[in-house]
Design a protein around this nucleic acid. Structure first.
Length: 593
RNA sequence: GGGGUCGUGGUGUAGCUGGUUAACACGUCGCCCUGUCAAGGCGAAGAUCACGGGUUCGAAUCCCGCCGACCCCGCCA
């Protein structure tokens, strides 16, 4: 069998994979390897489904054959090597649901390459298994075809991304994983330095500073499928380490970068057989917040939030007049078909907005041409009619109104909009809704310190035409910051960066850093700006989230081979774990309980 | 840091207004079965009800604590 001169999926151990034999292979002698997926023993003929990464092929063992006894003894997940002849399934026995369903392998030899204990859980697609069990036995979870498919697709798409960027003259350059801690922003994972007692490296939250320095090094175009680390609380879309398609370009503006990102999405979706092309729609951050109450709206659906402050300016309703008197707003959203919501449903929706700080939620149902609501008595005839016009209310709809400060009304209604979409399941306007959200505020007041702080990243440049306001009105300076949103998920975030030391120091100064602090924390990048730093910008896109959307999962754990639990543990390897005394001593560490 | 859901044979669930044999499905084991493909039939084994306290004559069930998984708020440049 030592006949392989060219590497291929076929090896000395197998001639084919379990996914490739068809009627055309009929009559061929083949050897397959794989796992015993399922067995149907009829007391005479035995059918085995042999599975590998590529598919499933039915193997037949007949009572008169010497392999019969071995076939009888094989159990789930035994590793087998089967030699036999490809035959067409007789009569009406072809299985149209299987790619290999027209044929079977009539086995002449079956070797058991390894046995398996009974499984801790069923690998079949119909089996329900808890997340905890799956993560503990991740090596088995990954054998399930749905998970295996996610892993393979993820790998293929990274190849698509690489090819696309190489063709645009991007260079893949690795930036360090052992870097220095920066106290602002997310918490760092730190690594003690044995050679430097009391000193620590930090794992990077992103390659941000290094990739900018690469531009200053004249590398022109950089990319990396970079691993980022953040020691923060986890969610279904957040892991302590995640992968980002990170890129940076010299001599570009916002639109240049957007075109590169759009082209990448085009390539990725073309691989999936989907048509997606740029330029994607763009919206101002402030408009997005007003219309959707969230900076990553799911534009597969309409459901816009409408401002009703003017409509209710003379309202007798204290909830409205009170909010308006305090500089607040009154905003409404229509739930098409929402009149089916019971009082209990309305209570649940009210609880939802309360999580975002809202004091309550006013709701009205519109049935048979009439409003019904516990607060209807506070609405004048004119207001009732105006509401119908403004929101284009039809029979069977419901309207929800929030009256509060904009900073509370927006996220409350934004969350409500998401919930209304989940509950009312309106028709999708499109399958893939991309959106650029542009011109975020450059700075915002830090809630604790009262200082100005960056909204996204301290290296983002202000819009050139607004930079002069940094001295007089810094809160109203917009930035060259743009987020790419897909189906309500923040896929990526990028900006044109500051490339002069003067501008960078000015922004740091607004954030309360003096020159010494800037030098000690960001010396690397500001020093490089002194020596001919080119204008540059870039974007980082969450690869796990992108693959998650494509694979149709709500949890990025399903597209990461070995993810952590919500508490940051790996149930399979049992990380994190304590160090022993010798290690602690060597690292100059002492654990204080 | 806060809120919520959950934890019952190997797996997934039921039971949980306290009451004596903890139910069901899948899996496992045994027997039967020669064209199945989520094979089928008959039978069997398998559970200190996550853990630790408490209330009670009696706790899977009620109370407190604790551990773990998941979801959300805060947080996440």
């Amino acid at each position: 069998m030592m006949n392989n001169t060219t590497p291929s999926k076929n090896t000395v151990m197998r001639t084919h994979t379990c996914g490739e034999l068809t009627a055309a292979s009929s009559g061929q002698a083949v050897t397959l390897t794989g796992w015993m997926d399922s067995k149907r023993n009829h007391g005479g003929v035995i059918f085995l489904n042999l599975r590998d990464l590529y598919g499933v092929t039915q193997v037949v063992a007949r009572p008169e054959s010497p392999v019969y006894k071995i076939a009888e003894e094989t159990k789930s997940e035994y590793v087998l090597r089967v030699t036999g002849k490809v035959t067409l399934r007789p009569g009406t026995n072809a299985n149209k649901n299987m790619p290999t369903g027209e044929i079977e392998v009539d086995s002449a030899d079956i070797q058991v390459l390894n046995a398996s204990l009974p499984l801790p859980f069923d690998l079949g697609e119909h089996a329900g298994v808890s997340e905890e069990t799956r993560l503990k036995y991740r090596f088995l979870d990954l054998r399930r075809p749905a998970m295996a498919k996610n892993m393979v697709l993820r790998s293929r798409l990274s190849q698509v991304v690489r090819n696309y960027l190489y063709n645009l003259d991007f260079n893949e350059i690795e930036t360090p994983l052992l870097t220095r801690s920066t106290p602002e922003g997310a918490r760092d994972f730190v690594v003690p330095s044995r050679n430097n007692p009391g000193e620590f490296y930090a794992l990077p939250q992103s390659p941000q500073q290094f990739k900018q320095v690469l531009m200053m090094s004249g590398m022109d175009r950089y990319f990396q499928l970079a691993r980022n680390f953040r020691d923060e609380e986890l969610r279904s879309d957040r892991q302590p380490e995640h992968t980002q398609i990170d890129l940076e370009m010299s001599f570009v503006d916002e639109q240049d970068i957007a075109r590169v990102a759009e082209g990448m999405m085009h390539e990725i979706f073309a691989y999936l057989g989907e048509e997606v092309s740029g330029p994607f729609p763009e919206m101002e951050f402030s408009d997005v917040m007003l219309k959707y109450g969230i900076d990553k709206p799911d534009l597969r659906y309409g459901l816009e939030i409408k401002d009703c402050s003017a409509l209710f300016k003379d309202s007798q309703f204290k909830v409205f007049s009170g909010a308006l008197a305090e500089g607040g707003v009154v905003r409404a959203i229509k739930g098409e078909g929402g009149a089916i919501f019971s009082r209990g449903d309305m209570d649940k929706l009210t609880d939802l907005v309360k999580k975002y700080g809202a004091k309550g939620l006013v709701w009205l149902r519109f049935k048979e041409g009439k409003w019904e609501s516990p607060t209807l008595k506070f609405f004048s005839e004119a207001e009732q009619a105006a509401l119908i016009t403004l929101l284009e209310v039809k029979d069977g709809d419901a309207v929800f109104i929030a009256a509060d400060k904009p900073a509370i009304a927006a996220p409350s209604l934004g969350a409500l909009r998401t919930e209304l979409i989940a509950r009312l399941k309106p028709a999708q306007l499109k399958k893939w809704a991309f959106l650029w959200v542009r011109h975020f505020p450059l700075l915002e007041k830090d809630a604790e310190s009262g200082n100005w702080t960056f909204t996204h990243n301290p290296f983002t440049a202000p819009l050139p035409e607004e930079a002069h306001k940094l001295d007089t009105d810094p809160g109203n300076v917009r930035s060259c910051q743009y987020d790419l949103v897909l189906n309500g998920v923040e896929l990526g975030s990028g900006s044109v960066r500051n490339h002069t030391r003067a501008m960078q120091e000015k922004i740091f100064a607004l954030m309360g850093y003096d020159k010494e602090q800037v030098q000690s924390r960001f010396g690397m990048i500001v020093n490089a700006m002194d020596y001919g730093a080119p204008p540059h910008g870039g974007i980082g896109m969450g690869y796990d989230r992108l693959i998650g959307i494509i694979c149709g999962t709500d949890s990025i754990r399903d597209v990461i081979a070995f993810p952590k639990t919500t508490s940051g543990a790996c149930l399979m390897s049992d990380a994190p774990a304590k160090l022993d005394e010798r290690q602690l001593k060597e690292l100059h560490l002492k654990i204080v309980e």
